Amino acid sequence: MMKKLVLTGAGGRLGSYLREPLSKLAEELVSSDILEDIGTLYPGERYVKADLADASAIHALLEGADMVVHFGAIGDEAPFEDILGPNIIGAYNVWEAAYQKGVRRVVYASSIHAVGMHAKQDFIDTEVAHRPDTFYGLAKCFAEDLGKMYWDKRGLESVHLRILSCAQVTSARALGTWLSYDDLIQLVTRAIDTPTVGFSVIYGVSDNDRAPVDNSRASHLGYRPRDNAEQFALDILAAEPLADSTDSAQMCHGGAFAAVDLGQSGQAQMSIVDDKKKV
């Protein structure tokens, strides 16, 4: 068992589902976000408020840590000036602090939006070229390249989880892109407990019949999703209008993010249910 595991973005929706299982993987889970507090803590969990753009705060946060699960960021498209601090400088601060503090591995919440402008009919694998759909996606590309460089130059391992749609299934697109919360937990756990990972990229998606991405190059991580969005297909397709082949939101992997103007919210075009886990 690890002595200390750090989770950034612990106050977010995905972080709320990760806190309890991660608290069981280390003697101490240090959860962090920019909120004043995140409510009731699990046994072995401690909360530290820290701004990702504050290098000194992140270096202090990672002191003595074995690994860091980095989910903290602005989770939507926004003007570049807003993305720059938490998503780009914040990623650098995490990797540099991890290197200086002797952290073994960074597990990073990347995104399909790093490759979101690829055509949806292309069955893309983890080696496909970056093709970001937004400033948000561009920041994910930066962090993936950062992780590769720190592995090549400094031997710091990282796993980059290109999450597709970790939310309730409310659209036809999500029949392929859904990542259940149970599969999210398995994905992060495998990224932590796989003995060696080097630099790895894996798509965060459940075992959907209509999954549009190929994880065969990431099989070494041992992630074997169990859930399938096909259980929702009948109701979703009955309510969905016919597809529009001129709509980038329907024709590109990035969905709504591929269609919005740079700096404009992608989530505002989606129906994301806020089902954040309550302790």
Score class of each variant (00 low, 15 high):
residue 213 V to T: 11
residue 156 L to F: 07
residue 157 E to R: 09
residue 82 D to G: 06
residue 185 I to K: 13
residue 210 R to T: 13
residue 272 I to A: 11
residue 109 A to L: 11
residue 13 R to A: 00
residue 273 V to T: 14
residue 236 I to L: 01
residue 21 P to L: 00
residue 128 V to K: 13
residue 170 T to D: 00
residue 126 T to S: 06
residue 72 G to W: 05
residue 220 H to F: 06
residue 9 G to H: 11
residue 167 A to L: 02
residue 22 L to A: 06
residue 192 I to P: 12
residue 85 G to S: 09
residue 134 T to D: 03
residue 98 A to K: 00
residue 90 G to Q: 11
residue 74 I to T: 13
residue 101 K to C: 08
residue 71 F to A: 07
residue 244 D to T: 10
residue 188 V to P: 15
residue 42 Y to Q: 08
residue 145 D to R: 04
residue 87 N to Y: 05
residue 223 Y to D: 02
residue 47 Y to K: 07
residue 150 Y to F: 15
residue 157 E to S: 10
residue 275 D to T: 14
residue 70 H to N: 10
residue 114 A to N: 08
residue 37 D to Q: 11
residue 198 G to P: 09
residue 140 K to I: 13
residue 177 T to G: 02
residue 134 T to R: 08
residue 235 D to H: 06
residue 251 M to F: 10
residue 130 H to W: 05
residue 100 Q to C: 02
residue 241 P to L: 01
residue 9 G to R: 14
residue 125 D to T: 12
residue 234 L to E: 15
residue 161 L to G: 04
residue 52 L to G: 12
residue 51 D to A: 06
residue 47 Y to P: 14
residue 192 I to L: 15
residue 167 A to K: 01
residue 51 D to N: 14
residue 83 I to W: 01
residue 51 D to S: 06
residue 17 Y to K: 04
residue 37 D to C: 08
residue 174 A to V: 05
residue 49 K to N: 02
residue 30 V to D: 03
residue 57 A to D: 09
residue 55 A to K: 15
residue 144 E to P: 01
residue 94 V to H: 03
residue 183 D to C: 00
residue 164 L to Q: 04
residue 214 D to P: 04
residue 10 A to H: 13
residue 11 G to K: 08
residue 40 T to A: 14
residue 60 A to S: 15
residue 77 E to D: 10
residue 20 E to A: 14
residue 231 Q to V: 15
residue 216 S to T: 11
residue 39 G to A: 03
residue 261 D to K: 14
residue 69 V to E: 15
residue 90 G to Y: 07
residue 94 V to N: 04
residue 159 V to D: 09
residue 130 H to Y: 07
residue 269 Q to P: 06
residue 142 F to E: 09
residue 73 A to E: 00
residue 211 A to L: 12
residue 95 W to D: 02
residue 258 A to V: 03
residue 26 A to Y: 12
residue 28 E to H: 09
residue 63 E to L: 02
residue 175 L to F: 14
residue 96 E to T: 02
residue 88 I to V: 15
residue 273 V to K: 04
residue 44 G to Q: 11
residue 26 A to H: 11
residue 7 L to D: 06
residue 200 S to Q: 03
residue 209 D to K: 05
residue 84 L to Q: 11
residue 155 G to D: 03
residue 21 P to K: 04
residue 197 V to W: 01
residue 24 K to V: 10
residue 175 L to D: 15
residue 151 W to E: 08
residue 43 P to Y: 11
residue 57 A to I: 14
residue 68 V to S: 03
residue 123 F to C: 07
residue 125 D to P: 09
residue 29 L to H: 05
residue 113 H to E: 05
residue 18 L to T: 07
residue 76 D to K: 10
residue 140 K to S: 12
residue 2 M to P: 06
residue 113 H to A: 00
residue 186 Q to P: 05
residue 23 S to D: 02
residue 224 R to L: 10
residue 268 A to F: 12
residue 117 M to W: 00
residue 89 I to D: 07
residue 210 R to G: 07
residue 156 L to H: 05
